[in-house]
Design a protein around this nucleic acid. Sequence first.
DNA 1: ATGCCTCAACCGATCGATCGATCGAGAGAT
DNA 2: ATCTCTCGATCGATCGATCGGTTGAGGCAT
Lengths: 232, 232
Amino acid sequence: MSARGRSGDDTQQQVWEAAVRLFAAQGFHGTGIRELADAAQLSPATLYHYMGTKQDLLFSIMRTCLDRLVLAAERVAADAAQPQAVIASLVHVHVLTHALHRDETTVVDNELGVLDAERRATVVQIRDRYEEFWRRAVADGCERGAFAVPDQRFARMAVLEMCSGVAKWYSPEGEEDLDAIATAHAQLALQLLGVPAPRLAATALPEAADVHGLVEEIWHIQLPSMRARTPR
Amino acid sequence: MSARGRSGDDTQQQVWEAAVRLFAAQGFHGTGIRELADAAQLSPATLYHYMGTKQDLLFSIMRTCLDRLVLAAERVAADAAQPQAVIASLVHVHVLTHALHRDETTVVDNELGVLDAERRATVVQIRDRYEEFWRRAVADGCERGAFAVPDQRFARMAVLEMCSGVAKWYSPEGEEDLDAIATAHAQLALQLLGVPAPRLAATALPEAADVHGLVEEIWHIQLPSMRARTPR
DNA sequence: ATGCCTCAACCGATCGATCGATCGAGAGAT
DNA sequence: ATCTCTCGATCGATCGATCGGTTGAGGCAT
């Protein structure tokens, strides 16, 4: 299928990984074409065969990452019924994936301004679709009296920011179990939303195994068997 | 004091403002020397007289911004006694200043990786000193039984992220009153920290006027007289 | 099997533009 | 006379992107 070398798919993935790593570490404008080509083990000219322009590459990264989030949110929202359960699942998925893909998160969050107006609008639209799931979950919980917040918009942005922030400090070398982190953040999110302590204790948090299956399918990854998925 | 033109202090400030605006909008590497000089109404050579190297300028911006935050946190921590009041004041100051100086916040948060190792370490050290005030406030509240969180570190990072996030969506053209936003976030932070609703209602939130004085002094700005500082 | 064709994969060389930074010189104030 | 401030001109390096051209595997007719 190819002339001397890796298959196209392998190369495509190497370009993706190199770009995400370098863009996250040094920024889009801080990463040169030659540097990117070296990291992907290609010549600059060959790199263009795969990525189009540099901005094309950035755009495809952002689009892919956000599309996956939207897809996951659709599934979660379709499954769970109680607003608390929806929030808990959204938080679990968000925290899990943002911690596992810190570099992607960094790129999506920091380099939006690099895109031209048209592409930025496209990306923002996908992001808004994602946030819409959170908006509905918060509004739903408030209507049913499950949540109590001074302002729904503030609360939504606060929960989103606090979950995305995990990508800024999480390190896989740390001792914390990822599911424990996700569960703790689900609890913090529900507390932020004004769920009283007694009712919080009675809330059934999502099964980690269910979330894992969803994440593994959409992100095409194999989660390491995490500790204590089914306690002894 | 100068040859034909503004005074040195004025020029310095114009460089600061141009740099903060451009670095925030296009990133450090995305902003050229000539572009920066144009925005500050200087020639590229004159620009170097004021900023040193480009990275010197970035470093001084970050240092100044974070020093102000630390100074404000020291004052707040010295004034208030109850952990709830400390958190509420920290949140109020943080939200107020991050909303009023969105560009500074963007630069400090996004361009840390640009600095060389030594300067980055210096900046991180100041940031850590700031976060230490939050750590103590959370720990204090937990020890006294005022707060209830699954993990103090997670809670601290969550509150910080949610407050900083205001800079990402706040617009001065919006209808919301800044003090109302800050107060709402103080309430959300206390809820996140597990303060039960009844006790929260009984908590005295900081007087907006006090916080305003602190902010005006440290940031050298004049806050517009805000609506309903003393409700009729 | 053999020869031929096509096309994705790949690259050395190089384009014009821009990058960050510096120099020496001049202008004006003290 | 000295010092601060100003700038046009220009440095070498690097930028993103494109060019023409080589390679070799897979398909096809013989």
